[in-house]
Design a protein around this nucleic acid. Sequence first.
DNA 1: GATCATCCCTGACATTTGTCACGGTGACCT
DNA 2: AGGTCACCGTGACAAATGTCAGGGATGATC
Lengths: 203, 203
Amino acid sequence: MTSIRVLLADDQALVRGALAALLSLEPDLEVVAEVGRGDEVVEAALRSVPDVALLDVEMPGADGIEATAALASAVPDCRVLVVTTFGRPGYLRRAMEAGASGFVVKDTPARQLAEAVRRVHAGLRVVDPSLAAETLVAGRSPLTARETDVLRAARDGGTVADLAASVHLSEGTVRNHLSAAIGKTGSRTRAEAVRIAEQNGWL
Amino acid sequence: MTSIRVLLADDQALVRGALAALLSLEPDLEVVAEVGRGDEVVEAALRSVPDVALLDVEMPGADGIEATAALASAVPDCRVLVVTTFGRPGYLRRAMEAGASGFVVKDTPARQLAEAVRRVHAGLRVVDPSLAAETLVAGRSPLTARETDVLRAARDGGTVADLAASVHLSEGTVRNHLSAAIGKTGSRTRAEAVRIAEQNGWL
DNA sequence: GATCATCCCTGACATTTGTCACGGTGACCT
DNA sequence: AGGTCACCGTGACAAATGTCAGGGATGATC
């Protein structure tokens, strides 16, 4: 029996190498490529032809979701298993919509990772059950495109004038969008709205 | 020659297990304990008598800095190597002041981790050179104790009234501390001050 | 004992922020 | 064609925020 070829993508070199060591302990798994940026995933996949890609969500270049979408269209035979630090509902939803076969949080026991890779390779879906439930109740983002833009720009904590400049809108409009976002997130402050939206993976 | 006994502390089970796998590849290293919380470190160290403790900074219960201090007084023979996702100047400074022998960022190549453990065990200090330089220019936190408290409480984005309640201060005092923090961080907004202070590891 | 820094508080002020009501545009669907 | 929805803007208002100038209290340092 031929072994399962795995591509590893994580921006933290130490974690990446450690995961490689972990998976290499399994006789039926073989790590054939490692990258540290989201925009290097497709290129590496074309070169090494992996069966399964293990993608982190937080990465420079392109995040794991974008990489998933790119990979699904460029190398459709390669299944995607997304691994992430943060179990945010929006991440799970967007990852699955982008074509991922599995979604694993970094809290899960190390023993289960290899098994998750095998399941994904076998065509099954692997999803953390509690996170799946959370995703269902959280629903998809209630924010409109512009509200998301404005809230994203508000993450680094500038004034309304700063936001207006960076999004090319009037100050009044920016405040309207912020007000709407505050209402939809059930918060009382711009900063709180940012925090909630971020926790849900809406940004 | 007897092998180096290593204790592993990281809240993410997957990363913890992966690091264990990575270190276990080295014939002269032996992982003798794994914990997922900062407040379990000392207990585990007393039981397993490690030579080197690998501590993550971000952990529930007690963070890696607090765990370092506790370990240094409870098990002084055990050297501490701090590993962290974020290379924040304040983290490095506080870790060293708490008695750590080394400080490694998770960006470093996996190959170097085992070598870092060996160096620390040999009594040497291991510090990322670029981060060390950054720490020198950043200096220690300019914030007073109360300013730090208030700014920490402001992280989740509540109103001044919320902060005043959570820190047991008058609203006016809270605003004064925030104003001082804004001035010292060279920012224009409370949220921006929080962001800057957080990036420098001052919270 | 004087000096200094920090702390806590007050009160007042200008600015910013969040809210609301409103009008107008374009896209999409029925 | 009409209805709905997101979008952009205006103007105006109350509330929250950031700033400043004070005063009193504490503890460390010289």
